[in-house]
Amino acid sequence: MDFRITEEQELMVQAIEEALTRENLESYFQECDRNHEHPHKFWDILKELGCFSMFLPEEAGGDGEGAITMLLVMEALGRCGTPVYLFWDHVKADALLENGTKEQIEKFMPLFFEGHPAYAQGFSEPTAGTDLSSGTILTTYTRRNGKVYINGHKHFISGAQGSDYCLTLAKNSENPEQLTLWFVPTNGPGCKKEPMETMGLHMENVNDIWFDDVEIEEKDMFSTEGNGLLATSKGFDYERLIDAFNAYAQALCAYEDACRYANQRIAFGKEIGRLQLIQNHIMEMAMRIEAMRDMLLRYAWNKDNGLLRREEASIAKQFCSESANIVVDHAMQVMAGIGFCGSRVSRIYRDLRITRISGGTGEIQTVIASKQILKRYR
């Protein structure tokens, strides 16, 4: 495996870091975080840099860049202190191209290129998260008078405020074993959206959505009837890998900020970085940063070469989410009061905690990975 960065990748990373350094958006991010607003200035920079088309499939007109390039982009975004957790919507494009109708592809694909949220994804419910089965999914679809009607309550839905549609998992009211995905409009009659209060991720909205006899048509079905979970399952492993990229990228920012602070802060007549107990924190962070990056480069290479195993995606997500939270805790300790009071490290500290929960908790990643590993030794 050769993990040397190509000249094109190096120029891309350089362009991202130069653009974000020049704009100096940290005070803007703080304002957006306080006001729970999407950082539109940041989004405009990403669009200008071509980041939205970069990872879309070539058959859709994108650049078709792979996982290693994705890691490098997210690493650069994280290093600059951006809300890198926002940069993931484009991963839905593969499933859309594979399972969407011509009309659905023509409707939603252009939105990815613009950086607009093409649609939210409505899987979780108050009774269903990790367990998405017919016994836990209570949202239903009912056919009546040539139309389809959606009823139910979706929970923890990211990005719904800015999305006109939600790709909604529902069960057939007449045959509950059939779980099917539908594109359901969220700004029309019968639909109610409410933002949820969250500990972090304040530049992204997380929502409850209620459907009360929302009328749609058969053409709004995604994939085939009863194929609700399989239609997007291929993307789950890549999403978990990207979750790991996100955790690493945010931790990298906190690590580098803490190292810079340790070289500047004077205590007892010298830089605190010269104190052995502070050096212990630096070493603990460095070990995890290096381990995360090496693991992710290897797994990204596997993804680009069609070799990524399911357990690798879960291992990456579990290890990086745990390690990133540990790194940021060390960074907070090094930076002490200044870290706690308004620095971007305190924002990262809040934002990172969700990485151990979203996309499948650490506990479910352990179950997924261990099952796959044990199969090989039967």
Rank of each mutant, 00 (worst) to 15 (best):
R144E: 14
T186A: 04
M283C: 05
L179T: 03
R22W: 10
R260K: 07
A160N: 10
S223K: 11
A300L: 02
A120C: 08
G129R: 09
R265G: 02
L277H: 14
L275H: 14
G100W: 06
Y85D: 02
L230I: 06
V206M: 05
N175G: 01
K219P: 05
L56I: 03
P57T: 07
W88F: 10
S173I: 02
G337S: 13
L241N: 14
E59G: 08
G100D: 08
G50V: 00
L132E: 09
L97R: 09
Q178G: 02
Q14D: 14
R310L: 02
H116P: 03
N205I: 00
A336F: 14
T355H: 15
T139C: 08
Q14V: 00
M199W: 15
G61C: 05
T139K: 03
L86A: 04
R344M: 06
I68S: 15
A316M: 04
D212N: 13
A291V: 01
E114F: 06
E26Y: 12
L72M: 07
G64S: 10
W88I: 00
S134W: 08
C166P: 07
E204P: 00
M1R: 08
L252W: 07
M332H: 13
T6Y: 13
H155E: 11
L167S: 06
K270L: 01
I348T: 13
F108E: 07
K154H: 06
L138W: 12
K107W: 10
T21C: 03
F55T: 00
E125P: 05
F52C: 01
R288C: 01
V206E: 09
E194C: 01
M54E: 15
D212S: 11
R22S: 10
R344T: 06
T127V: 01
C80F: 04
M109L: 09
F55G: 00
E18Y: 11
I216T: 09
S321W: 10
F183Q: 03
Q318P: 01
A258F: 04
L352G: 13
S321P: 06
A331N: 09
K234D: 14
Y248E: 04
I354Y: 13
L352R: 13
S321G: 15
D257Y: 08
V367E: 12
E174Y: 14
I338Q: 15
N35P: 02
Y349C: 02
R356G: 07
R79N: 06
L77D: 10
